[in-house]
């Protein structure tokens, strides 16, 4: 009987909600036509220095059995500790699948873990389906404009990192909680008794203001803006609305055209306005994940292939500067 393993995402002693999405995906794999008759079981691995409480919480929430992976040295996440200890644990289980989050943490340790397990490694999975030959995984490619479909080439274990927001968490289960099994695997650095990666501290960039998170209307600029000067046009557009905040996609902030407090996406602010207008934003996965709770999304982009159009309520194919100019004239009338 094969196991489907889920690696819970723990950050600063807390369970990250993506963990529940991973469980949904694990259930989907378990119930897929090819695997169903093998009746695989799901287990959730919870790595922590003291995993008992977190494990119980997860077992209660999901009704699934949990392995609390106790690593006394794990005060803070490092890829070195994760890969070393998870590899030891998972090798003994010999699972069919290992699921982790496609987050800064999952992307950091999963590829190394996959090689350690001699596994197939598919990252950024945003869809799972099956045909007569088994499971097919899709993942974004070419700046998010296409999905690539892959399947494992052999019977090796498959490690997947799943794109946040792809699989909806299942409803909370009232039934029996899963069992919790605590297993201790100390981290023993191989060379000269010293670890290679030492976590010094975690810092947070402070937002200068919180306007984006609370804004009802957000006008956001992307790379369709070719010069810093053109941002004036975006500001004028924003002034058409009673209270609108100006946002930006990551590249503009990377170029220092706008401050970090304007950045929208997983690495910036996650927003939920009534109206979101994406001005010349193509729509990277990390940006789209940051706006998925917006009520109404309007996108203006001159490229009809821009990925953001597939995630918009209203699409306007036009040059952003020309469009704003025309819109301002119309509004004056």
């Amino acid at each position: 009987m094969k196991q489907i393993l889920v690696i819970a995402e723990i950050f600063a002693g807390q369970i990250r909600p993506i963990t529940w999405e991973l469980v949904t995906a694990a259930r989907k794999i378990k119930n897929s036509p090819g695997l169903k008759q093998l009746s695989p079981t799901i287990q959730i691995i919870v790595p922590a220095d003291n995993p008992a409480l977190l494990s119980e919480k997860i077992a209660k929430q999901t009704g699934i059995d949990v392995i609390g992976l106790q690593i006394p040295e794990l005060k803070n996440y490092t890829s070195e500790i994760y890969i070393y200890c998870l590899e030891q644990l998972i090798k003994k289980i010999d699972p069919s699948h290992v699921l982790a989050a496609h987050t800064s943490q999952g992307q950091d340790f999963a590829p190394g873990l996959a090689l350690g397990l001699n596994a197939v490694a598919i990252s950024g999975v945003n869809g799972i389906r099956s045909d007569e030959n088994g499971l097919i995984y899709s993942r974004p490619v070419f700046n998010n404009t296409r999905n690539q479909m892959l399947r494992p080439a052999s019977n090796r274990p498959v490690t997947l990192t799943l794109m946040p927001g792809t699989f909806k968490p299942d409803e909370r289960k009232d039934g029996e909680p899963g069992r919790v099994d605590i297993r201790k695997i100390p981290f023993a650095p191989a060379v000269c008794g010293k670890e290679h990666i030492q976590h010094c501290r975690t810092v947070k960039k402070i937002f200068e203001d919180q306007t984006l998170e609370e804004a009802k209307v957000i006008i956001a600029a992307g790379r369709g803006i070719k010069e810093k000067e053109e941002l004036k046009s975006i500001l004028k557009f924003a002034q058409c609305f009673p209270t609108a905040a100006v946002g930006a996609s990551r590249p503009l902030v990377d170029m220092n055209w706008l401050g970090y407090q304007h950045q929208i996406g997983i690495t910036g602010a996650t927003v939920a306005p009534k109206l979101y207008i994406a001005c010349g934003i193509s729509g990277s996965s990390q940006h789209l994940a940051g706006i998925k709770d917006a009520e109404f999304v309007v996108s203006i982009n001159k490229n009809p292939q821009a990925p953001i159009f597939r995630h918009s309520d209203v699409c306007i194919i036009a040059d952003i500067i020309e469009f704003i100019g025309t819109f301002l004239k119309k509004q004056e009338i």
Partner: peptide, 26 residues
């Protein structure tokens, strides 16, 4: 380690109504 099957367009998550016409129309 993986077999490539092909490419597809990403799924739509919103209706994606396209405004037609000239720039002023839009």
């Amino acid at each position: 380690r993986e077999i490539y099957i092909g490419l597809a367009l990403p799924e739509k998550t919103r209706s994606g109504r396209v405004l037609e016409g000239s720039l002023p129309d839009k």
